[in-house]
Amino acid sequence: MSAPVIELQQVTKRYDDGPPAVDGITLTVRPGEAVAVLGPSGSGKSTLLNLIAGLDRPTDGSVTVDGVRVDRLGETGAARYRRARIGMVFQFFNLLDDLTVADNVMLPAQLSGMPRNAARARAAELLETLGVDRHARAYPGRLSGGERQRVAVARALINRPALLLADEPTGALDTASGEDVRQLLSELNEDGQTIVLVTHDLTLAASCATRTVSLVDGRIAQDQPAAATR
């Protein structure tokens, strides 16, 4: 059996003197899984995602992603890890309005040291695959919400990450655009991309996740195949 993409061992995160935001979580995600993390506000979903992304460090426990002990990384090492190992998709796209669509997608590759011509070719390939190549020279503000999220996914995938993290990827979209992104994530997973997504969108979880993990008060309350929730 192949090595896990994510392995969390007894991970706890405390802020100040309050109750832990994440409380003793042990979780393994294998290559090719699409895991939807569900739970009410304040359940620890975003904290868990930030720990996996290396944007935060656990108070206790270990976080290993694609063979990297993320909890041991300093700020510079964590930035390199994010560029090389993971792609991130956010609720509000986080595209740079003063860069064209193509330049937005190319940016992480160039920061990783990919030659500009190679980055441009990879960006063009992704934009075509994701159906937004006609907007390559446009600026993000001219695109619909669904199109901007497709551009954000292209940017997240440009360095061929082992893991795609998505934080409420349909939260800012209308119904039609949300369905568009749900289909896109499902297709990416069918092609083998490992995905962890945080969402309140039960339709998203049912349509593209192979497994759902429910959090309550920072702990895993339920972990089951997605088919069991349909």
Results as ranks from 00 to 15, higher is better:
33 E>L: 03
77 G>H: 07
116 R>V: 13
48 L>H: 04
61 G>I: 03
67 G>V: 08
135 H>V: 02
160 R>E: 15
46 S>R: 07
57 R>M: 15
120 R>S: 12
137 R>V: 08
124 A>T: 14
108 P>K: 05
161 P>G: 02
130 L>E: 00
39 G>F: 04
117 N>A: 14
162 A>C: 03
129 T>L: 14
148 R>T: 10
144 S>R: 00
110 Q>E: 15
139 Y>A: 05
47 T>W: 12
64 T>C: 15
100 T>C: 13
83 R>C: 10
137 R>M: 14
49 L>F: 08
121 A>G: 10
73 L>E: 04
138 A>G: 06
155 R>Y: 00
80 R>N: 15
127 L>D: 02
93 F>T: 06
144 S>N: 02
134 R>V: 15
159 N>F: 02
133 D>L: 12
57 R>Y: 14
125 E>N: 12
63 V>H: 09
96 L>H: 09
94 N>C: 10
66 D>T: 14
73 L>P: 09
131 G>I: 00
133 D>P: 02
144 S>F: 02
88 M>K: 10
144 S>L: 02
113 G>A: 07
83 R>T: 10
119 A>D: 05
134 R>Q: 13
38 L>H: 07
149 Q>P: 02
116 R>I: 08
140 P>W: 06
128 E>N: 11
110 Q>K: 14
69 R>P: 06
69 R>V: 15
118 A>M: 08
106 M>G: 09
102 A>C: 13
110 Q>D: 06
94 N>R: 12
157 L>F: 06
133 D>T: 08
162 A>Y: 02
54 G>V: 08
81 Y>R: 13
70 V>R: 13
95 L>F: 05
36 A>E: 04
77 G>V: 06
126 L>R: 02
105 V>Q: 04
125 E>A: 14
103 D>G: 05
113 G>I: 08
120 R>C: 09
159 N>C: 00
106 M>V: 05
74 G>N: 15
145 G>L: 05
102 A>F: 09
141 G>N: 11
53 A>Q: 11
107 L>P: 06
72 R>I: 09
88 M>W: 09
155 R>M: 00
51 L>N: 06
54 G>A: 08
77 G>D: 10
37 V>E: 11
128 E>L: 12
128 E>T: 13
127 L>Y: 00
150 R>T: 01
62 S>W: 13
45 K>F: 05
71 D>L: 06
44 G>D: 04
58 P>A: 12
123 A>Q: 05
106 M>I: 05
122 R>N: 09
65 V>R: 04
97 D>T: 14
48 L>W: 07
122 R>Q: 14
81 Y>I: 09
31 P>N: 05
157 L>Q: 00
130 L>P: 01
119 A>R: 02
153 V>E: 00
132 V>Y: 01
154 A>R: 00
103 D>P: 06
134 R>N: 11
144 S>Y: 01
136 A>W: 01
45 K>N: 03
140 P>M: 08
144 S>Q: 03
